[in-house]
Design a protein around this nucleic acid. Structure first.
Lengths: 226, 226
DNA sequence: CTGACTTTGTGCATCGGTTCACAAAGGGAT
DNA sequence: ATCCCTTTGTGAACCGATGCACAAAGTCAG
C-alpha cells in the first residue's frame, strides 16, 4: 500500500473520495480565512458534513498529511487537495448556450475562485451573439471549433436546449475535448475516453418530492382504489 | 418480500433507485411524445443510460408493471413512476435569492413540466424586490414566513449567497418546510426531519478537472521536487 | 393446444463504500 | 526520560448497490 512515506501518489483514488475532496477544500478555505492553522479530522469532518472516519480514510488516499495527536495543517492540506484535484493549474472553460442558465454560470463566482476561467461563451442565437456577458464577447456557434482551439479550452459546459446538446457535444468531442459538464436534460452518447458529468436541476427536486410525499404519509393515504 | 401481487407498495425503495426514477421518467416522456406505446427494459435502459438489469430491478421495487415477452407499457409506466415520485400532486416551490442563478431557476422550464410550480420569489435586495420575474412579483425577505404560508410552499430552493443561506434555512425550517434544495456553497445544519439536497456547480467542475488531469498524464509529470 | 421465442423478475456472487474500533504515533507535562 | 493524552491511519466487519445469468411467465404462430 504505502511504498514510500513521502511520495504516496497512489493511482486509483476511489470515486466517492474524489467527489468529497472539493467539499473538504471548501471547508478548509473557510478555515484558512478565519486564521485557523490546524484542524482535527473531527472538526473538519463536521465542517464538511461527513463522518470523521470517512474523512480520515479519504485523506489517507492522498498520503499521510496529518500529525497524530495534533491534526492537519490547514494551508498544507489545502495545497495537497488542490494539487490532487488539478486546481493548481488554470482550466479554460467554454460555456455553450447563453440562456438564463448560461448567463448565471458565466457570472458564477465559484468557478473563478477554484481555478476555473470562463474563456469563451458561445451561442446560436444571432440576438445574443456579440453581446458582452461577464466581460466576454459571445461568439457564434459556427466558430465553436475555432474558439475552443484558440482559447485552449479543455472543459466544456453545455447549457443549450436539450435538442441541441448532442450535436454540440459531438463537435466538441471531435476537436479533442474530453471533459463535459452537461446541464441539458438528455443522455449524451460519447466515446469512452470522454468524461461527462450531468446536473439536472429538476431531478433533484423530484427526489425531494419523493421524500416529502413519504413524510406526509403519502403512500398510505393514497392506496388508490383498494 | 412480495405480500400481495397487485399492491406492492413496499416501503423502502433504495435511495439509488429513487435517484434514477426521474431519469427513466424523462426517457419515457420522450418516447410517449414519439408515440411509442411499449418498450423493453433493454431499450429503456439505453435511453436512460443505464444497464438493463439495473433498470428491471429498479422497476421491480415499484411493482410488477411489465409483461414478460413484451415489455412495459409506456403510458402506464409514466403514471406509476410519477405517482411513486409524488409528481401527480402539485408542489409549490419558493426560490429564495433572485440573483443570476435564482432568475435562471425561475425561468427553467424543467420544473413546471414535472409538476413543480414556482409559487414565490424572495430576495433581500430592495432593488430586486418588486420586480417581476417569470411572471412573479419578487417579495421581500422580511415576509418570508408569511409568503411560505400563504402560498402553501412545501419545497424551498436556496439560491442566496453563502453567508445568508443558514439563516434563511433556519427560518423556513421554523415555519415547517422540510425539503430544501441548496445551491449555496455551505453545509446547512438542519434537524433530522428535514431533507436537504445540495447542488454545487463548482464541485462538478472540480471532479472533471481531477479526471482531466489524470488523462493528461498529470500526476506523473508533476512529481514536484522529487 | 403445443412449442418456439421473447422478455421480465430475481437469486446470487461480487464489489465498492462506510463505519467501527483500536493500535501506532506523536505532543507535552512532569 | 517517562507517562499520559490526543488524534491519526487502517484492519476488518458490514451494508447497499451492481450485474450476471437463468427460471418463470408471458406472446404468437401454426
Amino acid at each position: 500500500m504505502k511504498s514510500r512515506p513521502s511520495q504516496p501518489r497512489d493511482r486509483g483514488i476511489p470515486e466517492a473520495t474524489v467527489a468529497r475532496l472539493p467539499l473538504y477544500l471548501r471547508a478548509l478555505h473557510g478555515m484558512a480565512e478565519r486564521g485557523i492553522a490546524t484542524v482535527s479530522s473531527e472538526d473538519l469532518a463536521n465542517a464538511a458534513g461527513v463522518n470523521s472516519a470517512k474523512l480520515r480514510k479519504d485523506l489517507s488516499h492522498l498520503g499521510s498529511y496529518g500529525t497524530r495527536g495534533v491534526g492537519y495543517e490547514v494551508e498544507y492540506l489545502v495545497y495537497q487537495i488542490s494539487r490532487e484535484l488539478g486546481l493548481t493549474q488554470d482550466w479554460a472553460v467554454a460555456i455553450v448556450g447563453v440562456g438564463n442558465l448560461g448567463r448565471a454560470l458565466a457570472n458564477y463566482g465559484g468557478f473563478v475562485s477554484r481555478g476555473f476561467r470562463v474563456a469563451a461563451l458561445v451561442d446560436a442565437d444571432p440576438e445574443v451573439v456579440g453581446e458582452t456577458i461577464a466581460g466576454l464577447n459571445v461568439e457564434h456557434i459556427d466558430d465553436l471549433e475555432a474558439v475552443i482551439k484558440r482559447r485552449g479550452v479543455s472543459i466544456v459546459v453545455l447549457a443549450t436546449p436539450a435538442a441541441a446538446a448532442q450535436e454540440v457535444c459531438d463537435r466538441v468531442v471531435a476537436v479533442g475535448v474530453t471533459s463535459i459538464l452537461n446541464f441539458a436534460p438528455v443522455v449524451l452518447s460519447v466515446p469512452e475516453t470522454v468524461d461527462v458529468r450531468k446536473v439536472d436541476l429538476s431531478i433533484e427536486l423530484q427526489i425531494l418530492a419523493f421524500h416529502e410525499q413519504r413524510k406526509a404519509g403519502g403512500p398510505l393515504m393514497a392506496v388508490d382504489g383498494q
